[in-house]
Nucleic acid binder design. Sequence first.
DNA 1: TTGCGAAACGTTATGCTATAACATACAGAC
DNA 2: GTCTGTATGTTATAGCATAACGTTTCGCAA
Lengths: 134, 134
Amino acid sequence: MTRGEQMQADILSVLMAQDGVMSAYDIMDALKGSYPKIAPPTVYRALSALTKAGQVHRLESRNGYMACQHDHAEETAVLSICDDCGAVEETASNKILDDLAYVAKKSGFVPSRHVIEMIGTCGDCASAERDASS
Amino acid sequence: MTRGEQMQADILSVLMAQDGVMSAYDIMDALKGSYPKIAPPTVYRALSALTKAGQVHRLESRNGYMACQHDHAEETAVLSICDDCGAVEETASNKILDDLAYVAKKSGFVPSRHVIEMIGTCGDCASAERDASS
DNA sequence: TTGCGAAACGTTATGCTATAACATACAGAC
DNA sequence: GTCTGTATGTTATAGCATAACGTTTCGCAA
């Protein structure tokens, strides 16, 4: 395992342990134990490789990162982000991808990457709110 | 017209004159003529009101802003962003919204906002590249 | 017309996110 | 061992966004 792969593996395990969204600086802090001298560029370089490989998703609406919950690697994920508890659910939808491909084709657009995020309240928090108000 | 409405109208006209993505600081610079003392919070406050009203879209993957090209106001837009020339095309797709609603419903997620962005190469740039390489 | 109060802007400061540019260290091939 | 490419470390800075509080503006009512 090269140094680069080691760093990426460490970041991935930090993200998987967290089960939620982390900022790049959160990740850096978590790695301070193993890498006392770590600095932002190192984290961003590794995150860039991991997102390109599909092992990590970047949440554009949050400037955050999370481990991929599936093994899809290739497909684009739909990310449902809860404003209340911060939980993120990842869903694969070929249907949406087909729709986007259709939209792109109509105007000759050649997509290289998709961002599909829903911001709102997750099922758990939504039912908790219903209980509280009843 | 209240002060707030005036500021929002001025920002909107700056964005419409630009025909592309602008950062909040780009907008602020453009307003320095009319508002010599303008500072970031003012711009962000107005942008927040405009995005809530659907007159301005925030491009999450770019941390940028653009004037809404349609009159939809309510519907969510699909934004196709060209990496080469920066142009953004806005498309309305109820089909994609239906698909997202279905995804949300399956897990009880209650969405309040959608982010749908395609990053890639626009039709014009794609054909220019083809011409250049032939 | 004067004074009140809400809304919006200004000011200051700061925090978070991200990258540029260059130096250093590591790992594998030879 | 030395060469070479790759990744990390270091330093600095650019870019994005908001907190907290003071000040101005303006409609409205007395």
